[in-house]
Amino acid sequence: MAKQVVPEAARQRRRPTKQGTVLSEQLIMETALRMLREHGSDGLTVRRLGAALGADPSTLYRYFRSVDELTLAIGDELIGRAMHGWQPGGDWRADLRTLGARIHAAYLAHPQAAVLTASRVTGRAHEIAADEAILGVLRTAGFPDEAAVRVYQAFIDQSLAFAILDAATLALPEAARSADEGVWRATYAQLPADTHPHIAATAGLLVARMNRSAYPTALEMLLDSAAASLARG
């Protein structure tokens, strides 16, 4: 049976934890983000989280029914951080470009959490506000509803997909990440033109580009496609 979740206003402890802090959803999420950064997803357990907060693990169920619900809350928190302070400027391409960069950066600031949450649908307040904002940008720009939804889906899925891809790279151990980055120079740049003419011809460009995220390029291509669709509309 699911545990009853107490409303936020009624959850405040009347006395501090062993570490002298008062529990709240925000404090639990901040601590969980730190644990993910330090220990990865395997390190996020109710027992470890309770120990980090100086609280009995059972107390955490007053705030979140399960670790999965906490995971969804963390995902929504990252979206909220991406949207914080953003306001549409009236140029739909510039607005979406800025939003995409914000979403990507917010997830990459917490790569372990990004890998864990970017594929989830939270249905929480920040996610809903982001969806409303993106659809508002597109509909205000003149996209018909069907086209607005199509572009919205491509935009948000692309942003989150690159967030997962790039965050997974950042979450690798330093030695593994350095080894992967070195392959372009140590292997691809050394391939002979007689057997691999196209790689050899572009080797310098590959070395310069392939260890950078392709997200800005992919986002610009998506915006180009959406603009062409709007012009045909």
Rank of each mutant, 00 (worst) to 15 (best):
S58C: 00
L78K: 11
T31M: 13
A55R: 03
A168T: 14
A168R: 14
P216M: 12
E132W: 02
V46K: 00
A193D: 13
M210N: 13
A10V: 07
A176M: 04
R185M: 07
T140Y: 02
D194Q: 09
R34I: 05
P173I: 14
L70E: 04
D194E: 12
Q12L: 15
F143E: 05
I199Q: 05
W92E: 03
Q87S: 10
A154V: 08
L219Q: 12
L222W: 02
L27I: 11
P192I: 12
D145E: 12
D68Y: 15
P144G: 13
T59V: 09
E220P: 00
S213W: 06
L44W: 13
E181S: 09
A208N: 01
A52N: 01
A101S: 06
L223T: 08
T45K: 01
V183T: 03
H110W: 12
A125Q: 14
R185V: 12
V207I: 13
R97M: 02
R97Q: 09
S41A: 15
L78G: 12
V121W: 10
G80R: 07
A109T: 08
D95K: 02
A94R: 09
V151G: 03
Y107G: 11
L116Q: 10
S213V: 10
I74G: 01
A105H: 05
A9L: 11
L33A: 12
R120E: 15
I156K: 13
L72H: 07
V22I: 15
E127D: 04
A228I: 04
R15H: 13
A167Q: 11
S66L: 05
T17L: 03
L23R: 06
L72A: 06
D224Q: 08
A94D: 01
A176R: 02
V115P: 07
S24V: 11
L160W: 13
D194R: 07
A163S: 15
V6C: 05
D157K: 06
A163W: 10
M221V: 08
W86L: 15
R139I: 09
A186N: 05
T187F: 14
I134F: 06
T98Y: 01
A55Y: 04
D194A: 07
W86I: 14
A148G: 11
